[in-house]
Design a protein around this nucleic acid. Structure first.
Lengths: 338, 338
DNA sequence: GTGAAAGCGCTAACAA
DNA sequence: TTGTTAGCGCTTTCAC
């Protein structure tokens, strides 16, 4: 077993004694080929293990039955979506192609435009874009955004109720007696980040608690980018007694920073996250957080995309509910400091 | 913002007043283009937001700087590898393309051959294949297998020490006083599955405990496929007091089945898994398991692939250590049954 | 320094 | 029913 160079359609044609056009017809199940020929060609295809090149095929036909999921990188958030999309795609006849077009540092604005430009029109019939940095609409190519960018956009979207989730998180901390609550926000360009901060402020206002602006910092939704703002927050002379982190990664980063500063979570400071990625249960202490149904979001996005391609009339904005998940990273505030 | 059809190289050429050949040279940084022309073309490229089509480009050039990760589906095991590969790829100049070529039911033998045939030669410069079902070698195309198929294969591989891990798991159960230990094995065609069962048998033999063959069943490494064998095991009149599941998914399935039968884990039966996927910490009770460094395996596989492409001389078989992770799904065996 | 032309592997008219 | 032809968007000689 060392032979198989790449076998192409012309190889099949030659072996079967027909033209490539005929092979193409057989491969694509077109009418107008003698039954005997069909069988002979199929026989050769099996024997040679021929499989059409996705690149060449899509270049020509503009239909591939492959759906793209475009992400900046494969981190816990996007891989959860991927899991959901993966089970949803089963039995649809589509294949899934996940493309990571970022630079790995999470800083490349516009990665989704580049990825989309490289893959759309050829290779994929439609795409789900995860947390895009810019808004753009292409003609004749279907795109669904998960956790979309801020700003008006005609794009079909899937997200969760970020505002309500943030209110949930903040109210939980308030109910525990915290008043000096910090917030590490996410990527300023994302609607979700904006809404979480807005929910935080709303809940604080509703409770009659003034937000200390020094306790609100931009964390960027990543472990590395959140470390510095977290450190600043915790170094304040009158540091917060609780932190609502914009997502679980920021929360985990905050816990790491706290530990490195000799602070105990939740004894010295309570931390709550957002997302409920699987990793949040693995940190020490296990993270209290707001759950977004990530896998379901991935599944809904994929279903929406398939429906759009099929021309199904339907609602193109899906918003799923969030939920408080209590673990061990928060405790009641003790004014006495005992 | 509704304009951009797909902009192609000919659009750039026309706008810049040059030929597509010249644009191509500029895009690929070839020598022999006047500095002024280079700048003008680059200006137009930026202005139009041009990006080369992966499909067309790869069809012609057979070099794409895209590496493939081929999986049957996006489940916790493969997505962990993906996370590891994603951080490893940063800064290498490669992009990652993950392709799910299975049928979603996990039953399609040969998916990796099909996926490979569709993507290799065009689109990707090399591939990491996750738990392939068959062995095959292509010429002039680099492939690394993670958790490879049983049987001799020239393929470069990355795996963990499955045998030692299984011994670890079994010895742990033995040390807890269990003697009637069941095993739900994995996919018969995978080397990892074979080695885990072998390690189980070895550890039992070393402890002088006879394996009851009725307590060894094939589980297939998936939640759904493991449910029936688990149910059979737990329905036995003299059911095992502990089960070593071939992987975490089977273990989780076993816990589900136990609960549905009214059995308590770990009070009525202890369960240990293998893999340490993040989900294992989320089940109730949190799963005791054998950790494979999945993200690191993904990273090592990607590094190995890149080295192979670059022609670096190096070891092409990487085996990483496993480790016992104690959580709450096992407890000492109580002969009295109190 | 630049462009015309051939061709990557495939599909789709159209002709035979 | 089958093969011939053109061309998808791009790269690469090779003339000019």
């Amino acid at each position: 077993m060392a032979f198989p160079q790449r076998v192409k359609m012309s190889d099949v044609a030659r072996t079967a004694g027909v033209s490539v056009a005929t092979v193409s017809k057989v491969v694509n199940g077109r009418y107008g080929v003698a039954q005997a020929t069909v069988e002979r060609v199929q026989q050769v295809i099996r024997q040679l293990g021929y499989e059409a090149s996705l690149g060449a095929q899509s270049l020509r036909s503009h239909r591939t039955n492959v759906l793209g999921i475009l992400v900046a990188e494969f981190e816990p958030f996007s891989t959860e979506l991927l899991k959901g999309a993966s089970v949803e795609v089963a039995g649809t006849g589509y294949q899934l192609l996940a493309y990571s077009g970022g630079d790995g540092a999470g800083t490349a604005v516009g990665w989704e435009r580049r990825s989309l430009a490289r893959l759309s029109g050829t290779l994929i019939d439609g795409a789900v874009i995860v947390t895009p940095t810019v808004v753009e609409t292409k003609q004749g190519f279907h795109v669904v955004a998960v956790d979309p960018h801020t700003g008006p956009s005609g794009l079909p979207t899937v997200d969760s109720d970020n505002f309500a989730g943030a209110v949930l998180a903040t109210n939980y901390l308030l109910s525990l007696g915290h008043r000096r609550i910090g917030h590490i926000s996410g990527r300023a360009d994302l609607e979700s980040s904006r809404l979480r901060e807005a929910g935080f402020r709303q809940a604080m206002a509703d409770a009659g608690v003034t937000v200390d602006e020094r306790l609100v910092r931009v964390g960027g939704f990543r472990v590395d980018s959140a470390a510095e703002p977290a450190a600043e927050l915790l170094s304040l002379p009158d540091r917060p007694t609780a932190v609502f982190a914009g997502n679980d990664l920021s929360a985990i980063s905050t816990i790491n920073v706290a530990r490195s500063m000799g602070l105990s979570v939740p004894d010295d400071i309570s931390v709550i996250g957002f997302d409920n990625i699987p990793e949040s249960a693995l940190v020490n202490p296990p993270l209290t957080t707001i759950m977004q149904p990530l896998q379901r979001m991935g599944a809904e996005a994929l279903r929406l995309l398939i429906d759009l391609i099929a021309g199904v009339e339907r609602d193109t904005h899906i918003r799923l509910p969030t939920e408080l998940v209590v673990r061990s990273s928060c405790r009641p505030h003790d004014p006495a400091g005992t």
